[in-house]
């Protein structure tokens, strides 16, 4: 068996095990708690050993986890079907090495600084007041589109190394989404990883101009000036 096939299978198993551990020991379904208990820390599910499926908290956690995973995957499928060329362009740019991924992360961080500053400055004028909300929407879309490309490329690269290239693109998306989702659900560290993934996603979208495949320069405008 190809060494990468073992790695892929191991990663999938680890991702599932990690998610199950999160479900059993941590409070994922925080929104189910009563408003009065929000200020206090909730004890982990102590009854899981004896009555795993009777524990309402565990069941709520499972439901939350599965619903979040499915939602993320379905959003990815929607993006893949809506703009396959753009996702491919973003994925190809991401496949050019870790240096490129780090660059996209840096672009994401700088973009958040710009949007935050512009958002704050825009409240000074009446006609630019809605800008913070619009910028927030753009950043949200950019982040999630980039994360879809990141998940797809991650899955594709792993399947290609394992020799499973003749599969549907959706299989790559499933694998990538599963790995990224499991990492973002690791207790405590997951939030930091989630922020990093979202920033990289935003950077990927911005750097590739939402996957248009065109370079970041003003050449089209300069051609007009020279003509």
């Amino acid at each position: 068996m190809n060494r990468w096939r073992i790695v892929v299978v191991t990663l999938v198993v680890l991702a599932i095990v990690s998610m199950i551990i999160s479900v059993l020991f941590f409070d994922l379904a925080w929104w189910r708690r009563s408003l009065a208990s929000l200020g206090s820390a909730r004890a982990p599910h102590r009854a899981w050993r004896t009555a795993l499926f009777q524990d309402e908290g565990v069941r709520a956690n499972f439901a939350t986890l599965i619903a979040s995973l499915v939602t993320q995957f379905l959003f990815g499928v929607l993006i893949l079907y809506l703009v396959p060329d753009r996702v491919r362009n973003m994925a190809q740019d991401l496949s050019k090495g870790w240096q490129r991924v780090l660059k996209f992360f840096a672009v994401g961080v700088l973009m958040v600084v710009i949007l935050g500053a512009v958002g704050l400055l825009s409240i000074l004028a009446v006609h630019t007041m809605p800008l913070p909300f619009i910028l927030l929407g753009i950043l949200f879309l950019a982040s999630f589109s980039g994360v879809v490309a990141l998940a797809y490329q991650l899955g594709f690269a792993m399947l290609a190394r394992a020799g499973w290239t003749s599969r549907s693109p959706l299989v790559s998306l499933v694998l990538g989404t599963l790995i990224l989702f499991a990492l973002t659900n690791v207790p405590y560290l997951g939030s930091i990883f989630l922020i990093m993934v979202l920033l990289t996603g935003a950077g990927t979208s911005i750097a590739t101009r939402f996957g248009s495949g065109k370079p970041w320069n003003l050449l089209p405008l300069m051609e007009d000036v020279q003509a």
Partner: peptide, 28 residues
């Protein structure tokens, strides 16, 4: 938003934008 903050926000925006353009234009 005092004058210094507005100025600082403008400076940060310009620097970050220059950073992005440099990062991406070099690659392109």
């Amino acid at each position: 938003l005092e004058i210094e903050i507005v100025l600082a926000l403008g400076i940060l925006t310009a620097s970050a934008l220059y950073g992005i353009i440099t990062l991406l234009s070099n690659g392109a």
